[in-house]
Each structure stands twice: as structure tokens, then as C-alpha cells.
Amino acid sequence: MLIISCPWCGERPEIEFVYGGEAHIARPADPSALSDQEWADFLYNRTNPKGTHAERWRHIHGCGRFFNAVRDTVSDFFVATYKPGEPRPDLSQDDAK
């Protein structure tokens, strides 16, 4: 089981959390201006990288709050967790090893 570090509560076991998908996908500022393709990109298309991935998690059986994490999808190693609104940490692939 993974140990995940909630930015507010510290390290907790994986079963206290739910996964929330790719992070930093902002809702369009002017939704009516979007084309169908831009809506499809927002709603459905995902990076799905093999390597470091910025993603949302929620500490649902703890503080209940959302936060973001950078995780290596090959090793499942958590490189960093950070609060929502903060920019994605500038991490190289080496940090995930």
C-alpha cells in the first residue's frame, strides 16, 4: 500500500484517499466560446504519461480536502504533494527515481 503525504495531515495510508485524475485542467473561462474539439480536449483528452504525472487526490477519510501530487506512473513513487492553487513543482525525471 502506498503512503501518501497530505499537505495538511502528513503521511497516511492510501486507503484514506481517492484519486481525482489529471491536475491543472482549468475549467474554461469563457465556456460558450469553445469549439466542440476544445470541449472534447477539456472533458476527455488526457496526457496519460508514462513518467511523472501531476494529479489530484482527495483525503476523503481525513481532512476531506483536495490537493495535488506529482507521481511517477512507472514506479508509483510520489515525488511531491502540494496544495491546490500552487504551481506544479519544477521537477526533473531524475527526482522520481
Partner: peptide
């Protein structure tokens, strides 16, 4: 499971998660 990775080589983003 590696479709997103291969398609990214052609510059295509896919509606997929692995």
C-alpha cells in the same frame, strides 16, 4: 495500455487513461 505513449509520438492526444 501504452496507446497514449505511442500516439503521443505522432502528436495525437487520446481520451485514454491507463
Amino acid at each position: 495500455g501504452h496507446t497514449s505513449v505511442v500516439m503521443a509520438m505522432a502528436g495525437v492526444r487520446m481520451p485514454l487513461e491507463s
